[in-house]
């Protein structure tokens, strides 16, 4: 309880520091003084360009994507009462990037800049909706995860099909970006397209978070407490679908951060799913900002994709969390 009081402010400060640090680092070394000057609008025009057009949007995109995945993961875990539930594992991110690729493949994105985020969100909502229907039908958490894995595989297969049929190398490389996940070269305009959906999703999840605590006791007891189970499911699915879809629209599919951050936060908030939401969002955002700094510093010939790094770190963490679970909870 005492941890809860300083946790959110501390994470907020750390996130700000992380975003600032991300602005300090890049292919052109700039001293902190010049960065600060560029931040405040003074300094050389070149510096301002580097900070305001290249580094800051990229760092903010990494933070927002992480925050969206962190809050969605924490909320889905609360709804499904399972620490392994997460947009990536359950196939929500893959479905969103499939829908986004579909829109690219058929040239729908030329219609309006809003088509891409909307397609990603639609894909995410369809996947979360299917999962919730599955969750109502089966009480087994293992079955649900398997359905998510199936959904993820299917979206992956459909994605491969689209790539197989890709008309030209440009759309192929676009699709690879969606699959691997990256925040490189993101602009404030890209962020502006995703942010409204992301914000609405996060607000929905925050305003309906109380019911997630009630679900700790199981669905029957939560109904007995006065929870409207149907409404809770709809709101959580909608909120997580909006936030996840917006994150995919911004960066493609980035997995596992929605598992790792809430897992670290839970013990600090007394394992209350409601109180885990905001700190999980901040921590997941911070993790992606730091991972993206790592991506940029890594001495590789072509830049590593953020989603690849997240999966390389996150997948072993997923296995570790799964192995810690006691059979009793199945």
């Amino acid at each position: 309880m005492s941890a809860g009081r300083w946790l959110t402010p501390a994470l907020a400060v750390a996130s700000l520091a992380g975003v600032f640090a991300a602005c300090l680092i890049g292919s052109t070394p700039l001293p902190a003084g010049r960065i600060l000057a560029a931040f405040l609008g003074s300094g050389e025009a070149g510096d301002r360009l580097v900070v305001w057009v290249i580094r800051l949007p990229r760092a903010l995109a990494a933070f927002l994507v992480g925050a969206a995945l962190g809050i969605s993961g924490a909320a889905l875990q609360g709804l499904l009462r399972n620490p392994l539930a997460e947009p990536g594992v359950l196939g929500v991110s893959a479905s969103a990037s499939l829908a986004a690729s579909f829109a690219i493949y058929y040239g729908l994105v030329a219609l309006s800049p809003w088509v891409l985020p909307l397609a990603a969100i639609l894909g995410a909502l369809v996947a979360t909706g299917l999962l919730t229907i599955a969750a109502i039908r089966t009480r087994s958490v293992v079955t649900l995860i398997l359905i998510g894995v199936g959904l993820s595989s299917f979206a992956g297969a459909a994605m491969s099909l689209l790539m197989n049929l890709a008309p030209n190398p440009f759309s192929l490389s676009d699709m690879v970006n969606w699959m691997l996940g990256s925040v490189a070269n993101r602009s404030f305009a890209d962020i502006a397209l995703a942010l409204p959906f992301l914000a609405v999703g996060a607000v929905i999840l925050m305003t309906t978070r109380r019911g997630l605590s009630a679900l700790t006791l199981g669905e029957e007891a939560a109904s007995g407490l006065g929870l409207d189970l149907r409404a809770q499911r709809i709101w959580t699915v909608l909120g997580a679908g909006l936030a996840t879809g917006a994150s995919v629209a911004l960066a493609g599919a980035i997995g596992f951060v929605g598992i790792v951050a809430p897992h670290l936060i839970r013990p600090l908030v007394g394992h209350d799913p409601a109180r885990a939401l905001l700190p999980s969002a901040l921590l997941a955002g911070l993790i992606l900002v730091l991972a993206d700094i790592g991506v940029r510093l890594a001495p590789t010939a072509s830049e590593l994709k953020l989603g690849v790094v997240a999966a390389l770190i996150g997948a072993p963490a997923f296995i570790w969390i799964a192995m810690q679970r006691r059979a009793l909870h199945d």
Binding site: A214, T216, H271, L328, H329
Partner: peptide, 25 residues
């Protein structure tokens, strides 16, 4: 039924106040 999370006793009992609009914190 088994609890989904290892919550604190006080937080679980506080859920009894759910219908009165209370949240754990």
């Amino acid at each position: 039924r088994p609890l989904a999370w290892p919550s604190r006793v006080r937080d679980i009992v506080a859920l009894g106040r759910f219908s009165h609009g209370a949240a754990a914190g």
